[in-house]
Nucleic acid binder design. Structure first.
Length: 203
DNA sequence: TCCGTGATTTCC
DNA sequence: GAAATCACGGAC
């Protein structure tokens, strides 16, 4: 169980997005350890990617973190209600990132359940368990990732990834989700997921 | 399958 | 100021 070092996050964003699959996302909050295995990611290739917040070199207070060094978190709010968790890739000045779309909950299932539903894990039905963290907004709520988790160094002690040597799966790719406005970029197969994992948000 | 929710950022 | 937005849950 080794914490991933910064060089893991630095480099080609499409490669990092695939390498992230099977890794464990850990959030230490209020003395508790919440974690889940990453099963679905999407790559956002900055300047040339119409679906990215940083398309065309757009640089604002919100996107500033993407221009920094790799291995930092980029958490943004969407539709006024939900957060999405991204990992900044590439070197300083290149605003690319990987969106974590879904995880399989691993540790402290009861805390994750309370965060999501205000109900204990043992009271959940099958559908509720499946829906715990199978989407970008859901996993942020479940793992308690919000505004205060933005701009964190993933090489620190609060929010980080570990390698549990989970390699026994095959990777599928597909079009990204929810970006039909992005014209030709909407068809790029930059979504990656673990085949046959029930926590993947869509097939 | 569709629609209301609802806040932050960005664009004009 | 207005529009747009990398979702979700519940009503049909």
């Amino acid at each position: 169980m080794k914490k991933l070092r910064r060089d893991f996050y630095c480099g080609d964003t499409l490669s990092v997005a695939q390498n992230l699959l099977g890794k464990t996302l850990v959030h230490i909050t209020e003395g508790k350890r919440l974690s889940g295995k990453i099963v679905e990611t999407e790559a956002y290739k900055g300047i040339t990617d119409k679906a990215a917040h940083s398309y065309g070199g757009r640089r604002t207070k919100r996107t500033e973190i993407m221009y920094g060094p790799c291995g930092f978190s980029y958490v943004y709010m969407i539709y006024g209600m939900y957060y999405c968790f991204n990992i900044v890739t590439q070197k300083k000045g290149v605003p690319e990132a990987v969106l974590i779309r879904a995880v399989e909950p691993l540790e402290n299932l009861n805390e994750i359940s309370l965060n999501r539903y205000d109900k204990s894990f043992s009271s959940l039905n099958k559908t509720q368990i499946k829906n715990l963290t199978n989407g970008p907004g859901k996993l942020c709520k479940g793992l308690a990732i919000g505004k205060s988790e933005n701009k964190l160094d993933l090489c620190g002690g609060t929010l980080y990834l570990v390698d549990d040597n989970s390699n026994d799966f095959s990777i599928k790719n597909a079009k990204r989700i929810g970006i039909s406005y992005a014209q030709e970029a909407a068809d790029y197969p930059w979504r990656f997921y673990i085949e046959n994992n029930i926590y993947v948000s869509a097939k």
